[in-house]
Design a protein around this nucleic acid. Sequence first.
DNA 1: CACAAACATTGACGAGCGTCGATGTTTTGG
DNA 2: CCAAAACATCGACGCTCGTCAATGTTTGTG
Lengths: 116, 116
Amino acid sequence: MPVAELLPLRDLAACCAPITREVISELDAGRLARTLKAVADPARLRLISMVAAHEDGEACVCDLTEPLELSQPTVSHHLKVLVESGILSRSKRGTWAYYTIVPGSLDSLAGLLATV
Amino acid sequence: MPVAELLPLRDLAACCAPITREVISELDAGRLARTLKAVADPARLRLISMVAAHEDGEACVCDLTEPLELSQPTVSHHLKVLVESGILSRSKRGTWAYYTIVPGSLDSLAGLLATV
DNA sequence: CACAAACATTGACGAGCGTCGATGTTTTGG
DNA sequence: CCAAAACATCGACGCTCGTCAATGTTTGTG
């Protein structure tokens, strides 16, 4: 469920801000809520931040387990949630799994949130 | 926990984007996660949207219960969560309770999310 | 091939969340 | 003062979520 497919693009012809805006659909609300849930967790927020702050913008599980003070299975679980929601991407090189932030994913999610 | 007090203002002197950004603190991650959790729910996202789309940008519980297809106690519960997180504000006039979006709350929350 | 390292997966547990019916509280109207 | 309307609160239920120990899987190494 990549962030880019969360919602259809807003009608670009809407040049004038309408007096009464349109209510978000039940389907879109469910999709957006699912992605927001993926981010609405202290450990996952820190994981995102740590990946972004790490060298070359990528980090493996071993880089994240110790500073997060959580067990390795828990860290892997959180990373999986973030990958499945389209925030992070995973690339395996050798024994290591490197995680990277999907460019623009956080920004588009923030954009969707701001226009609810 | 108003949104405005979620995080201290970023250092405005940071004119140049640092090679390695700073990791969000455990405390800030917890606070931001709590506010995001308040928004990461389909019913609450629709409530926010319905309040914004309603006449004069305010709506009472009776306006929201039927279109949301949820019981009145459930709607009141969701509204309370949104008020306590600083997204909505409540003003009682007579028997009715009118809910309004706190100006800029969603935008600042989105801004915090985008800079994690 | 055997062993170790890095992750992923599984199963289980406790805590928290969304929902509702029932009930309490406050305000208006007669 | 009493009845009705609009909400809020309470208590309870099922479900989801975050966490961990144990185990499985894959890759590199001697």
